Simulated scan of single mutants.
Amino acid sequence: MTTFVLIHGAGDSAWSWHLVEAALRERGHDVVAPDLPSDDEGVTWSEYADTVVEAIGDRTGLTVVGHSLGGFTAPLVAGRVAADLLVFVAGMIPRPGESANEWWAATGHSDLVRTAEEELFYHDVPPELAAEARRRARIQRETPMDRPWPLERWPSVRCRVLLGRDDRFLPQEWSRRVARDRLGVEADVMDGGHCLPLSRPGELADRLERYAAAG
């Protein structure tokens, strides 16, 4: 059995993982999917990581998964809990000392074509789920976004990167380059857009289970 630690992105909550969580539990795995304190103006990345570590408790056999902005929290957690695996799912990959607000220009994302939010994030999510996601949207405060990412060096943990073939927010070819430049990892690709936990939960659960089983 693996314990999957599922970390949501900006404006989201643990709910964004609920379909993947159900699929993993059906396969006999444990799941930890906390709400990050992203709507609290007074907290930074360290408190985000504290929230996840506290939710993990004394669990072992950990695969830590960060979606989108959750990629800034996931490595902090992985280093503190001695995770077996770290997975970025359409995730932002930080560098030590770089703030999330600096990340856009540093990776070249600022030069990408932008479009409406609905077309960026929910174009392949079932309408009822997209509507519920919008209803549950939370504020992402700027406090952590302005602070340097606090990890001094990358944790000693195996990493995988999984991209959505049709991701309009973090396009596949651009994301492949970022994964190579920052992690030395060749990214994997599956069908779907940016919100893979909602648009392709079953396939995403399958991928995560296979990653964890590969050791």
Rank of each mutant, 00 (worst) to 15 (best):
L6V: 01
R160Y: 12
V185W: 06
G9K: 06
A90H: 05
P171N: 06
M1T: 14
V77D: 08
G202R: 14
R210K: 15
D188N: 01
P197H: 12
V157D: 11
R182S: 11
R182T: 09
L76A: 01
D188C: 00
V65H: 02
I139G: 03
P127F: 09
P34N: 11
D167C: 09
E128L: 04
R25M: 12
Y211M: 15
Q140I: 05
T44E: 14
R114K: 13
E142I: 06
G184L: 01
A23C: 06
V125P: 01
V89Q: 03
G71R: 01
A49N: 04
R80D: 00
H29C: 10
A14M: 07
R80K: 02
R182P: 04
G71M: 05
R114T: 11
I56Y: 05
R136K: 09
D50G: 11
E21I: 05
E128K: 08
A133H: 08
G91K: 07
L6K: 04
L85E: 11
E118R: 07
Y122G: 02
A49D: 07
L19T: 12
M1Y: 08
V87E: 05
A100K: 11
S68L: 09
A49C: 04
A90G: 15
W17T: 07
I93V: 14
D191M: 09
D146E: 12
A14I: 04
V31T: 09
A100V: 06
V31L: 12
V161H: 04
E54D: 12
I56K: 08
L69T: 13
V53D: 09
T63I: 02
A83Q: 00
V43W: 02
V77N: 05
R27T: 10
C159M: 15
T63E: 10
P34K: 12
M92G: 07
P150M: 06
A130E: 04
H29K: 08
A10F: 01
P197Q: 12
A82L: 00
A55L: 03
A179Q: 01
A78L: 04
G91W: 09
R114S: 14
F169M: 13
V64P: 06
G70A: 09
A14P: 05
E186W: 00
Y48A: 10
R135I: 03
L36D: 14
L151C: 00
P144I: 05
R141P: 04
R165Q: 15
A214Q: 12
V31G: 10
R160H: 14
Y48R: 05
F169D: 15
I93Q: 08
E209Y: 13
A133R: 06
C195N: 14
A100Q: 15
R25K: 15
R200H: 15
D166K: 05
E186Y: 00
S156F: 08
G91S: 09
M190L: 13
V87C: 02
A205W: 05
L36T: 13
G97I: 12
G184R: 00
